[in-house]
Simulated assay, not measured.
Amino acid sequence: MKFLALAGGAILAASAALAAQEIAPGDVRIDDGAYAQSLTGVPGDPVAGRAAAADRGKGNCMTCHPITDMSDLPFHGDLAPTLDGVADRYNEAELRAIVINSKEVFGEQTFMPAMYRIEGLNIVGKKYEGQPILTAQEVEDVVAYLLTLKEE
């Protein structure tokens, strides 16, 4: 029983240390179209990133972007560039910046929403105020997924 309490304490301490490394949305400063530092210090999981990108309540990337890798899922949009080969066009730091806040990378003309921003937004439902669309780890996961999308 004492071992379980010690193990549980160690897990809580490790979780707190990881949470302490997380960069809050208001502390992110995109520099020249890139953000090199991980938001969490934890590597992204491309499988979880694919799920977040496909989730209509989260990344919802397919609504605007064609993605051949997600051809098994319905209702792809064609309003935005294909994400096929996106890892050949942008590096990890650039992809992270685009996911965090595409307007800082592409300018106000883009209609892609900021996924990890809570201030300066125009239309936000009451229940979503004060929280980003994606968590810091989901941003890292989506970036890890996007890095798998290379030209064949």
Rank of each mutant, 00 (worst) to 15 (best):
G57T: 09
S71I: 06
E152S: 14
N91C: 02
G125R: 13
L39P: 03
A136N: 07
A7K: 04
G9V: 01
A97I: 11
I11A: 15
A36V: 12
T135K: 05
Q137P: 01
T63S: 14
N122W: 13
G57F: 11
G44S: 11
E94H: 05
T63D: 07
V139A: 08
V124T: 15
K150C: 02
A93E: 02
P132A: 07
G107I: 03
K126I: 09
P43E: 12
N122P: 13
G59R: 04
A80E: 10
A93S: 14
R56Q: 13
R50C: 04
T40E: 07
Q37I: 14
A97G: 02
N122G: 15
G77H: 09
L39M: 05
E140I: 14
V139R: 07
R96S: 06
M115S: 06
P25A: 06
L95G: 01
E152Y: 00
K2A: 10
K150A: 07
N60K: 03
K126C: 00
I30H: 04
D55E: 02
R50E: 13
K126W: 00
T135P: 08
E119M: 02
S71H: 12
R29A: 11
E108P: 00
I100H: 12
N60D: 13
G49V: 03
A20Y: 09
H65Q: 09
A24R: 08
D141L: 01
D72G: 08
T63F: 11
L147N: 12
F111S: 12
K150R: 15
V86C: 02
V28D: 04
A34Q: 12
G41V: 11
G8F: 10
L6K: 05
A10K: 00
R117Q: 15
L79Q: 15
T148L: 10
G57A: 14
V28R: 05
L147A: 05
V105P: 07
P66H: 04
L146V: 07
S71G: 11
A20W: 14
K2I: 15
G26W: 00
M112H: 06
D78M: 04
